[in-house]
Design a protein around this nucleic acid. Sequence first.
DNA 1: GATCTAATTCGACAATTATCTAATTAGATA
DNA 2: TATCTAATTAGATAATTGTCGAATTAGATC
Lengths: 191, 191
Amino acid sequence: MTDPLPSADLLTFFKALAHESRLKLVGLLTERERSVQELASLVALKEPTVSHHLAMLKEAGLVSLRQDGNTHWYALETKTLAARAKTMLMKEKFAELAVAGQSEDKAVLNYLTPDGRLKAFPATQKKRRPILAWLARHFDEGRTYSEAEVNETIERRHHDRETFRREMVGHKMLARKGGTYWRLPEAEWVS
Amino acid sequence: MTDPLPSADLLTFFKALAHESRLKLVGLLTERERSVQELASLVALKEPTVSHHLAMLKEAGLVSLRQDGNTHWYALETKTLAARAKTMLMKEKFAELAVAGQSEDKAVLNYLTPDGRLKAFPATQKKRRPILAWLARHFDEGRTYSEAEVNETIERRHHDRETFRREMVGHKMLARKGGTYWRLPEAEWVS
DNA sequence: GATCTAATTCGACAATTATCTAATTAGATA
DNA sequence: TATCTAATTAGATAATTGTCGAATTAGATC
């Protein structure tokens, strides 16, 4: 709330600018601050619609609001634009997003060859777990696999089908009954 | 097609990056080029979906494609990213968008006060026309107006209701029958 | 040529977003 | 207080976009 640059992330920023009307609004604000009415008439949209777009731009930190009487004056925040432009040049910022929400899987990337196979299988238990999870996610939930099918699916990523099959069962990622396997819900996987 | 920077405009660029999956793909490509399969497994989406996203990124000039056998290797185009970052700092680029598709109306902006009223009414016929068009667009098509309503609508933008009412009728922007007015289709307006 | 594999295209469906009208809020003014 | 005005919020609908499975294409391999 007191952030000079609101906590808007890269995605919020791009979404804010990914619409013709909002791009136009930004364009109109490059010249000077403007009221909602004025903007609505200039882009030929109704005021509520413009209000909605301005809220998104504001959320992204791209415009600021100054209230005078009951007229709301919106102004472009060129600082934000400049800051984002700089961010865009830092590749790491995108890389961070790539692993957001899958932090556990981050490490897996180091073990993959360019064509998506496993280079190696680490020795320590802690490092193994995310790799097994990654592998287990290649099985569909809600169907069964014969042992041959399980082996095939594993071998597409690593030659050592025995080890991986055994370990996935051990972690309760796959269940086995006789010669039939199926994937278990991720919530039940054990460390 | 042979454009080094594809003819993608700003909007295409922002749209391309305005989705979490595509931002992740870009993130994964910061490290090195990758195949569709690999990307699909890393972002946990099906190949057709990833293919679709990559097409959008390609359209925006953000990725390039190198084909080897039937494997498609996508790589990040950092040049485009840099070029766009630079563009973002040039306010005029946004301003251009603001008037795209309404080139005729561009001139009108010079005659508007901050609160959307007309500052003046130019003397030359050529300059008047777009202003009258702008004003006429404030009337809804498909309903009728009493003369008093027409006057009100005009006066919200300029005090001289007589002149504007007369001129709009003259240009066939508004039609009159007795004391009732209505807006005519834009195609029929005359110069 | 037949088959296999990686990728794309197609068509359907789901989810998200844009837009409008109507209702509401908040400030200014009578 | 009542009223007017500018803006926002709510709710409904329309338009756009994302996702998937199925079908197709294009290159490689047998």
